[in-house]
Design a protein around this nucleic acid. Sequence first.
DNA 1: TCATTAGTTCATTTTAGATTGAACTTAATG
DNA 2: CATTAAGTTCAATCTAAAATGAACTAATGA
Lengths: 165, 165
Amino acid sequence: MDKEKLTYIEETGLVFEQLGMTRMAGRVFGFLAVSDKEEASFDDIREGLNASKGSISGTAKQLKNAGLIEPVSLPGDRKTYYRISKMEVGNILRARLTLFKTFSDNLEKGLILREKNDEIAGWLREVSAFYSWVGDKISDVISTWETEKKNIIKEKNPHEKIRHT
Amino acid sequence: MDKEKLTYIEETGLVFEQLGMTRMAGRVFGFLAVSDKEEASFDDIREGLNASKGSISGTAKQLKNAGLIEPVSLPGDRKTYYRISKMEVGNILRARLTLFKTFSDNLEKGLILREKNDEIAGWLREVSAFYSWVGDKISDVISTWETEKKNIIKEKNPHEKIRHT
DNA sequence: TCATTAGTTCATTTTAGATTGAACTTAATG
DNA sequence: CATTAAGTTCAATCTAAAATGAACTAATGA
């Protein structure tokens, strides 16, 4: 695999770290994204990333649970292959929205314990309301994407040439 | 400080950890949220949380940079006090939206390096478009909150009693 | 000016989490 | 039924980030 791709894979590792996943998860995803094969075997990945079997095993499970990759098995071949999953993209983000609710609930609990009903309490109430509200709104936005995505993508690139492959 | 509050403070630490900040940042925020004083001194916090000066110093800086708390100084008192900041809540979330752009850009870069223009490539293009689009939409949602929050809160609790303090 | 107090800095220690690697399980094949 | 190959599991190791605590700086005021 060429140097540019390897650099990209490492960058993807750092991006995934920012997103709260492990660096290795980003590497595996990045590897599959730029791999010249449709899907890569467990061992292709392990070799390509110079990692241990244990690490690949755990990371593959992590990415599978997150819905980002999926295993593929082929008849007459005992190996497991992996490829990037075509799972609905909105669901990946939706799963993260629980954090908004968690934060909002945490603030509510704090407000009950707080003795003073002062300016700060008012502000905390507002922050809690915001996160609760914005979580719902983002969920709506995701739904809009799901029903309208074809039109949205068209609007974004109205003059895009049709690709002949 | 009573046991319930201490439990709450620890919980808040865990919530903040989920949000990508440190546990101690959550503790400090939680402490200020349930403190019976309007603002707490550096040393109130340090004692309340049984932490070192160094830790409080670093954490206070972190929370100040994030816009979650603000220092207060009083005339004739050399101590620094902290209280929860009334910064616009939308900005805290907006700061996180750069991640969406980062992820979208990362995917675009991967698409350039990818040799096959297959189904997976199409999907990656869609994921990238989604994160770019949804980031903008969330920004719009935040703007809506900022201009409409009074109405939004009213709609949520239409029969709320007016509080006489 | 000197003593005291408040907070910062940073080298060291601690802790949590990621990675390894060897032993193990499972399943296919001769 | 033994052999081999593919993955998984988990205890040990490694790494990076967080917390400590002692030395330091800055600022007040006796």
